[in-house]
Amino acid sequence: MEVSLQPAAHTTGRLRDRLSFRDFGRKWKNRGMRLLLLVMAIAAIAPLLSVFIYVFQQGGSSLNWSFFSEVPVPVGETGGGMLNAWVGTVTIVLMASVVGIPWGIAAGIYLSEYGKGKLGNVLRFATDILTSVPSIIIGLFAYAIIVVPLKRFSAHAGAAALAVIMVPFVTRTTEELLKLVPNHVREAGLALGLPRWKVVLWIVLRGSAGGIMTGVMLAVARVAGETAPLLFTAFGNRFLSLSLDQPMATLPVQIYTYAISPYEEWHRQAWAGAFVLVIFVFTLNLFTRLIMARRR
């Protein structure tokens, strides 16, 4: 068979030669696609951006000192604030964190360091499912096993619901981060004559502590804004309450209650509450990113 030794047409000629019509079309197609993708990317963040702007406008103007320092006043009177709600949110999220974070980290350690067999796979699968269970169902569960038997809404029940929501998040983050620690680092510990649990706690966990902290903060930010599971657990409270076995106000629930009310004054306060909540979650996220950026 004859093999042509002539170079193909498009490889000859000078580079500055005019582009053919086909090349021209290809360039425009490329530009068109790029523009389309840019528009889509902007459209994706547009709702978020407008939510932010709206909440900032509405909430920022309604926010004042008494929002933080006063409890709600009776309908019709002006003034008052959400002291009860933000104190309640801090209390309940703190309680949930104290239980949920160590629990989740421990479970994550198990999955990463010991959960290689069948049991590990079952637990991992269950954790994934738990992550995607709607939060209102977790709330319903807490209602059924805590509120109903005790015949009382309480901060305990709300914190329990939030802890259950946190655990799978913290578990999976911990597991993923521990898996990033190379195996030869573990072996170095074992070869030094450390028992496995010390290798895990002092070398593996310590090596990824920063990453786990960021995962934990994201989990805290997530549950701080949860509303549904608190509706029928912590319930809400018009007064400042620090009794953990009593109903307790929380920011998301109070925002919900105020927003659906017919009163102008309450709407104003709901916006202020929304503003505070957004700032809180936003700050936590930003803080987390800063820490991560510094570690790299």
């Binding site: 680092v185 070869a191 920063g210």
Partner: peptide, 11 residues
């Protein structure tokens, strides 16, 4: 034991 890749303990 010393390994193929240098593996000082992180952090």
């Amino acid at each position: 034991m010393v390994f193929q890749k240098p593996n000082p303990f992180p952090s």
